[in-house]
C-alpha cells in the first residue's frame, strides 16, 4: 500500500469517527445515505470497472436484500440482523442463477438480462401487495430498540469500511489481476489458462451479495421499504456515482457517492430537474472524462500537460 493511500485512509477515518459529534441530525442522515451509496457504487464498480460487466440489477439486488429482510422481520418476527444475512444469501443466489444463464453469452446479454430482472422485481413488488404493501411501502423494524441516528451512522460506517477493505484487498490480489486481464482481453486471458467465465461469474455473484447487504441495512434504517430501492432510477444514481467519481479506480466511486449525494441535497429544491442534471453531468463525464473525477485529479497531480 502506498504511503499516501494509508495517510488518506487514516485521515478520512478519523474525520468520519468524530463527524457525528458535529453534524446536525439532518446532515447525519445525509452521511448515512452517502455511506449506503458508497457500498453500492464501490461494489458496482468492482463488477463494471474491473471486469467490464455492466449490470443493471444492482439496485434490484439491494431491493432483494431489503424486501427479504423486511418481510422476514414483519411476517415471521425474524431478527433484522438474521434477516439481513438471509437477504445477502438470497441476492447472491439470484445473482449466481442469472449469471450462470447469461454470462457465457457475453457482456451485452448480462446487461439485457439484468435490466429485465430489474423490471420483473418491480412488477412483482407492485403486484404482490399482500406481502410487499406495493407502492405504499413496507414498514419494517429498525436495527435498535431505541432509535439512534448516531448508532446507524457507525453501523453504516463500519460496514462500508469493511466492504472497502475487502474490495481493496481483492483488487490488489491475484484475483484482481485476473479480473483486469479479463477486462483487458478475454481471448488472451483464456489462452493463458484463465477460466474467464468463472472470474466473471464470481465477480457478479459477490457484488450482487454486497448489494443485498447494503439494501438490507438501508431498509432497516429507513424503516420503510418501497419499490424505489430496486428501481432503475436508483440504479442510475449508483451508476452515475461510479462514472462521475471514476470507474476502474478504488477511490472513484467513494468520491462520487459523497459528491453526488451531498450535491443532491443542495439541488433538491429543483425537484424533478435533479435526476436530469445528474444525467447530463454523467453523460458529459462519460464523453469527455471517462476516468471521472479521480482521473482528472490524478492527471492534474502528475502535472501532465499532454492531451490524449
Amino acid at each position: 500500500m502506498k504511503s499516501s493511500t494509508i495517510w488518506f485512509s487514516v485521515a478520512g477515518l478519523s474525520v468520519a469517527i468524530i463527524l457525528p459529534f458535529f453534524l446536525s441530525q439532518y446532515w447525519l442522515h445525509v452521511m448515512i445515505i452517502s455511506l449506503f451509496y458508497v457500498m453500492m457504487a464501490s461494489s458496482w464498480n468492482l463488477l463494471a470497472g474491473y471486469t467490464g460487466q455492466v449490470s443493471f440489477a444492482h439496485a434490484a439486488f439491494a431491493g432483494v436484500g431489503a424486501y427479504t429482510s423486511g418481510m422476514l422481520s414483519v411476517f415471521l418476527g425474524v431478527s433484522p440482523w438474521l434477516g439481513i444475512l438471509i437477504g445477502i444469501i438470497s441476492a447472491a443466489l439470484l445473482g449466481l442463477g442469472l449469471g450462470v444463464l447469461c454470462i457465457r453469452m457475453g457482456g451485452i446479454y448480462l446487461s439485457l438480462t439484468t435490466l429485465g430482472f430489474s423490471e420483473i422485481i418491480r412488477i412483482i413488488i407492485t403486484n404482490e401487495d399482500n406481502w410487499t404493501r406495493g407502492t405504499m411501502g413496507l414498514q419494517t423494524p429498525g436495527l435498535f430498540v431505541e432509535y439512534s441516528k448516531t448508532g446507524y451512522y457507525f453501523i453504516f460506517l463500519a460496514v462500508a469500511v469493511a466492504i472497502g477493505v475487502v474490495i481493496y484487498k481483492l483488487i490488489h490480489s491475484e484475483w484482481g489481476l485476473t479480473m483486469r486481464a479479463v477486462l483487458n482481453d478475454e481471448i488472451a486471458a483464456s489462452a493463458s489458462g484463465i477460466n474467464t467465465i468463472n472470474v466473471r461469474l464470481l465477480a457478479f455473484t459477490f457484488t450482487s451479495a454486497i448489494a443485498g447487504l447494503a439494501g438490507g441495512l438501508y431498509g432497516h434504517y429507513l424503516m420503510l421499504v418501497t419499490p424505489d430501492i430496486p428501481s432503475l432510477g436508483q440504479m442510475f444514481l449508483v451508476l452515475a456515482m461510479a462514472v462521475i467519481g471514476g470507474m476502474g479506480s478504488f477511490a472513484g466511486p467513494i468520491v462520487g457517492s459523497f459528491v453526488l449525494e451531498i450535491l443532491s441535497e443542495y439541488i433538491r429544491e429543483w425537484g424533478e430537474y435533479h435526476v436530469l442534471i445528474f444525467g447530463l453531468i454523467a453523460l458529459a463525464m462519460a464523453r469527455f472524462a471517462p476516468e471521472g473525477l479521480m482521473g482528472l485529479w490524478i492527471n492534474k497531480r502528475k502535472g501532465h500537460g499532454h492531451t490524449n
Binding site: 491475484e174 489481476l177 483486469r180 486481464a181 483487458n184 489458462g193 484463465i194
Partner: peptide
C-alpha cells in the same frame, strides 16, 4: 494486456 504492467502480464500466465 495493454493496461497492465509487463510483470503483471507474465504473472497472468503463472496464475493461469
Amino acid at each position: 494486456f495493454l493496461k497492465m504492467t509487463c510483470l503483471e502480464n507474465v504473472l497472468i500466465g503463472l496464475i493461469g
